[in-house]
Write a protein that binds this DNA or RNA. Structure first.
Lengths: 216, 216
DNA sequence: TAGATTGTTAATCGATTAACAATC
DNA sequence: TAGATTGTTAATCGATTAACAATC
């Protein structure tokens, strides 16, 4: 147990995809799947899939393949989806509300316990059975309720301050939607969704493709 | 011009970040910056920054560094942000509305021309001066109005169908928020934001960090 | 001119792919 | 048993980092 395998970021990004496709197989009632079949569906090489899975254990059976149900469960465990997380959403503007609804309806296992905002007009409102509270109470609430994850949907200017409060309150992970690179202690997990960056990457790809077309 | 440099995905993902930090420098009125200073801010090595930039041209000056204004403009040009894009949003639920508002207020250069939904209760509504139209009219509208980008905020089941219509209508890029890997022709750019995958990656990182802590 | 910093080549590192022995 | 497919080692490929000559 002392020797941690140090999982590369590339693998971490592929794991949820494996889970997604295994979920589809399960829904379709498929019992077994080989790395080759997975490869055709997902688009990674069979070699890579086997390599990735073996980072975490031996889940297959030689000459047979992988049991879909078993592998799905294993990947859930690897991803830490075999438990529940208490979350709060900070910043209940458009994006915050969308993320709240999204998480509320689709993300079983991630329970939104509290919503927070600084706008007095919003404080006191209820969204999906959860009350919007004052940001001033954030740190205290996170500590008292043992919140695991803070979801940041405030603007750039306030994001680091919110992150600091969440960390002080004891969260173990932050899901950040503000367009800024937050600084958090090394024992707190940070995942940022930079929508601007994503849109700009799309813009780059459009430009590249039209240049390619022009060359022909 | 016939020899395209084939920009790696890793570089594409770093470009918007360069842009972001150069924007900050510009706002602060900073005139020049060296690869070393950029390195300290952004976190990439100075070597990598110079390597990246030189994929696209020679933007610096030996012994001096980079002109902030000039570099910012160059990166905008590289990213294709020196023009305007006509976009439509398909699926005006929570997420669709959030993306619409987000793009409307913050993303100058990406103009939302039309909104589309299949829900009769929503069709006919107006959001930020844009009318919600029937999905049945999507393809025809995209063709007639010369739409560049389609933003997909519908559910998984309908996403590929919407993508097909957008492609048939002639879009050059798709920004996809549905949790599915869409199939589009190779001359259409595709950028997907998989929120679930992102949240699951966060979950993995939280688990990893707590295991690391337990080992000590 | 001397110092600084780029542009670029070469070295290193890590991730992906290929190959194959183990084995169900 | 024979065929299939994993687990795993070795080879390849690509991306990052280091080093330094060019030059402002």
């Amino acid at each position: 147990m002392s020797n941690k395998p140090k999982v590369s970021n590339a693998i971490i990004r592929r794991l949820p995809r494996y889970r997604r496709y295994l979920g589809h197989l399960q829904t379709r009632g498929v019992r077994k799947v080989s790395s080759n079949e997975l490869s055709e569906m997902i688009g990674y090489t069979a070699s890579q899939i086997r390599q990735d899975l073996n980072t975490f254990g031996e889940f297959g059976q030689q000459g047979y393949g992988y049991e879909v149900d078993k592998l799905y469960k294993e990947i859930n465990k690897i991803l830490g989806l075999d438990r529940e997380y208490k979350t709060v959403v900070v910043g209940v503007g458009n994006l915050g509300q969308a993320i709240t609804n999204y998480t509320y309806y689709y993300k079983i296992g991630f329970n939104i316990m509290g919503l927070f905002d600084i706008n007095p007009k919003i404080i006191g409102n209820w969204i999906n059975d959860v009350e919007v509270m004052d940001c001033a109470e954030l740190e205290e609430y996170v500590r008292r309720e043992n919140i695991d994850i803070g979801i940041i949907c405030v603007n750039r200017e306030n994001a680091q301050d919110v992150a600091d409060k969440l960390v002080a309150g004891g969260v173990r992970g932050i899901w950040n939607f503000a367009p800024i690179d937050l600084v958090v202690p090394s024992d707190v997990a940070l995942e940022s969704v930079h929508l601007s960056d994503s849109l700009h990457a799309l813009s780059f790809m459009i430009k590249s493709k039209s240049e390619q077309a022009a060359e022909k």
